[in-house]
Design a protein around this nucleic acid. Sequence first.
DNA 1: GCTTGTGAAGTAATTCACAGCC
DNA 2: GGCTGTGAATTACTTCACAAGC
Lengths: 218, 218
Amino acid sequence: MGKSDSIPAPAVRRLSLYLRQLEAFQVRSVRTVSSKQLGEALSLSDAQVRKDLAYFGQFGLPGVGYRVPDLIQRVRGILGTDKMSNALLVGVGNLGRALIAFRGFAKRGFRIAAAFDKDASKIGLEISGPTMLRVQPLKDMATAAKAESARLGVLAVPAESAQAVADQMIAAGILGLLNFAPVRLQVRSHVAVSSVDLAVHLEQLSFQLSDHANPACD
Amino acid sequence: MGKSDSIPAPAVRRLSLYLRQLEAFQVRSVRTVSSKQLGEALSLSDAQVRKDLAYFGQFGLPGVGYRVPDLIQRVRGILGTDKMSNALLVGVGNLGRALIAFRGFAKRGFRIAAAFDKDASKIGLEISGPTMLRVQPLKDMATAAKAESARLGVLAVPAESAQAVADQMIAAGILGLLNFAPVRLQVRSHVAVSSVDLAVHLEQLSFQLSDHANPACD
DNA sequence: GCTTGTGAAGTAATTCACAGCC
DNA sequence: GGCTGTGAATTACTTCACAAGC
């Protein structure tokens, strides 16, 4: 059971997709699923699915496949989403409010536990979502992080202040940052960062639509 | 000039990052940059930067580096963002409204040209952003796509309706989809899809915080 | 019969290292 | 001196193919 031999990042990314697909199978009362079925639903090869899952342990039954409820539980355990995780959110603009209101986090094991903003005029504002939040000043982050045992942070602030706010969140004890600002955050190696850059996504699409890609398909 | 020999996807992804960093250099009035400088700002190796750029052409001057304004223009041309692209948006919930209000698209060459919703009670609503938009019914998409020459679509609808709405957008002539719903969209091969799944990002962070990753760092 | 888990083979991406140029 | 562009070497990832198990 000592196999922490650095799992490929793409395999970890796909693990989330497997979990989602498994949950979809469970809703349809599917009891067991083969790597082939799981792969087809996600446009991946069966071998890919098996190899990915094997990085994390032996979950399948030869001749049968994977038991859906069991595998869901195992994958949640691996991702650390079997227990609810609390996150702090900074930046109560349009995006921040949309994230607070987003219902999808709860069923995946995440909860926005507190909201912060730099702008004094926003302090005290109440934002409704799965739970009602009152906007707090940045200086209260450390206290809130401790009170809520929050290890995750969501950065929904403009690019200019992103690095400074990230530093403050890390100082408050945050260990993983979901960053929506279009900058590369500089953080010490024990802090994890995942960035969502909307403009980059659109640029990728724009490129694929241009002639340079697509020399010849199907 | 015949080198459309299928460029690696990671190289295309990074091209967007280079562009952003180049723009940051330009703001600081930097005239030329080396692959080393560009790489350091993005935590990439100099060789990576050179090889990526070389997939698209020869932009650099040996002994000097890359001329910032020139390279910006070239990269925008490659990404197809030198001209403004119009996009249709479907789903005027919290996220959809946040996207409409988002100022960051315009300076990267994108514009949300029209907004749609399935919900009859939202039709006619005015949403303010860079430009004011009036929410339209889905059936008007084809007309709007033609009127605005929109090739891109933004899907900010619940998972349940994502596939159906995607089909309608494609029927309306949309060729590239930015999808925020947590489902894998099934589309014909001439349509490009880029998905943003917020829960997946948080799960990645959660995993990195758990013991399984991080067996030993610096 | 069918399916997993896995070493081996094959493919893709990154890094190295250096010739050629400023 | 410094820097690019690029083949060669390396590393990472994916697919193949099959022994072992149900």
